[in-house]
Nucleic acid binder design. Structure first.
Length: 224
DNA sequence: GACCAGGCACATC
DNA sequence: GATGTGCATGGT
């Protein structure tokens, strides 16, 4: 066993899974909406809600912003946590409409660090959601990490399992060039690996990264 | 019928 | 500063 470079890991994942075509969505605005709705939820649930919004012709910042809270809640119900997510989405829409006139283009013209701070300032937008919006809706280079990323890195012994979001994000950004296409695919591939092989009960014997496991197999305890 | 999913805010110690 | 809990639907 040796500690692989993150480029080496990427190559293995890409060879194993191919391009993941993230983020599913027809427009940057849809990606932004999806980023809120997908919090701690499977994407299949989000698809239903997105389709409803599309069918109602509401995939537009101003229209969605003006929608009554109760109506928005009903439309996004399939995602679960629908009341709190409707409110979080409204918070983001308020920021977008009031601060940027509803223009994603204007919003993404901000320097990344400033945009990130402003997004994090919105109630309901945490670090992963902010980075997902910036990378997948804005096509700007910020690395997204999530629970799968932590599990995979910690099980291989690359990072401590108690590492916080920003330090894990930094772990990737310090080793990789700030390339939007690379960051996009890398995060998607890690999620794919996580879903297929690295859930709470891992399937390390069949995993494409098996050769990188530390001696004695994956670290325990488990990482929820 | 458990268990889990592409988090986050808030309460409590 | 760390740890625990509520939020809720839908798929396996």
């Amino acid at each position: 066993m040796h500690t692989p470079s993150l480029y080496e890991v990427y190559q293995r994942l890409y060879d194993a899974f191919g391009p993941q075509n993230w983020w599913p969505g027809e427009s940057p605005f849809e990606v932004l909406v999806g980023a809120i709705l997908v919090q701690n939820t499977s994407w299949s649930n989000v698809e239903k809600a997105i389709c409803r919004l599309r069918e109602e012709g509401l995939m537009c910042p101003q229209k969605l912003y003006r929608l009554k809270d109760g109506e928005l809640e009903e439309l996004v119900k399939p995602v679960g946590y629908y009341r709190i997510k409707a409110r979080r989405l409204k918070n983001v829409l308020h920021y977008l409409v009031v601060k940027h006139g509803g223009s994603l283009e204007r919003m993404f013209a901000l320097p990344i660090d400033q945009l990130r701070r402003e997004l994090l300032n919105i109630n309901g937008v945490g670090p992963e959601t902010a980075d997902s919006i910036i990378l997948y809706a804005g096509n700007l280079p910020t690395f997204v990490v999530d629970a799968y990323t932590l599990r995979i890195c910690a099980r291989h012994g690359w990072v401590d399992s108690q590492i916080d979001y920003h330090t894990l994000k930094d772990f990737f950004e310090r080793q990789l060039e700030p390339d939007v296409a690379l960051y996009n695919e890398y995060h998607a591939l890690l999620v794919r690996l996580g879903k297929d092989y690295c859930k709470k009960r891992p399937r390390c014997d069949e995993c494409p990264l098996r050769c990188y496991l530390p001696d004695g197999g994956p670290y325990e305890p488990d990482f929820g």
